[in-house]
Simulated scan of single mutants.
Amino acid sequence: MMTEPTTPAPLPPSLITYLAQRDAQHADAVRTALASLTDRERALIKDAAVMGYVRGTMHPKDERIPKDGQILAEVIDACLAFPDLYPAINSTLADSTRAVFAEVHAERRRQDEKWGEQNHPDGTGSTHQRDVANSARAWCKDAFGSGYGTWSDVLAEEVAEANAERDPARLRAELVQVAAVAAAWVEAIDRRAAQAEDGDTR
């Protein structure tokens, strides 16, 4: 015997009033929070929120949700790929740095397309690697102290310090420094090229 579906009982007027008041309070809280921000802060939040929503809709439902730090990195990385659509986040970088990061972003995409996702052991933190890091620091300090320091010396020190770390958080921090130094070196090469070109045109 089939039974007809029952109609849900209407909400009590007092509960409807309470829910409406709560929604209004939440809306007021949002407006107050937004009003307390600078134009710059609001623009950054807008860029991150929109891209975060986009990335969220693209995330496979059967995969685990990434950690906050990974989500933030993915959102910023995606925003940097579309400077016209997400100008606030992109404007935080100097033009030269943004151009280098765009090239890095493109290279990372090429790597993923060619090799797929890579998950290798870190292979860091050995006694030998710590000794190498100490030597690299001493070499870099002496080189710059003598006035002969080079980008190669700086990057070699940063790479050696990354290789010396076994703790994942500290290793990650060192690798970010490696990437930053490499980007700065590329920017310096570009500046030299631009200066040489300007000199040739005079």
Rank of each mutant, 00 (worst) to 15 (best):
8 P>E: 06
8 P>Y: 02
9 A>I: 01
9 A>L: 11
9 A>T: 07
9 A>K: 05
9 A>D: 06
12 P>R: 04
13 P>A: 12
13 P>E: 04
16 I>V: 12
17 T>F: 08
18 Y>C: 03
19 L>S: 07
19 L>T: 04
19 L>R: 11
20 A>W: 00
20 A>H: 03
22 R>A: 09
22 R>T: 06
23 D>T: 11
23 D>W: 08
23 D>H: 12
25 Q>T: 12
26 H>W: 09
27 A>Y: 03
28 D>C: 02
28 D>H: 11
29 A>Y: 00
30 V>K: 11
31 R>C: 02
31 R>N: 13
31 R>V: 06
35 A>K: 01
36 S>V: 03
36 S>T: 06
37 L>A: 02
39 D>I: 04
39 D>R: 14
41 E>S: 15
41 E>T: 04
41 E>L: 05
42 R>F: 01
45 I>G: 00
46 K>S: 04
46 K>Y: 06
47 D>Y: 06
47 D>T: 03
47 D>I: 00
48 A>P: 00
48 A>F: 09
49 A>S: 11
51 M>V: 02
52 G>H: 04
52 G>R: 07
52 G>Y: 12
53 Y>S: 13
53 Y>T: 15
53 Y>K: 14
53 Y>E: 13
55 R>E: 14
57 T>W: 02
63 E>D: 14
65 I>R: 13
66 P>N: 13
67 K>Q: 11
67 K>H: 15
67 K>L: 15
68 D>W: 06
70 Q>K: 11
70 Q>F: 07
72 L>R: 13
73 A>H: 12
74 E>R: 14
74 E>F: 10
74 E>P: 00
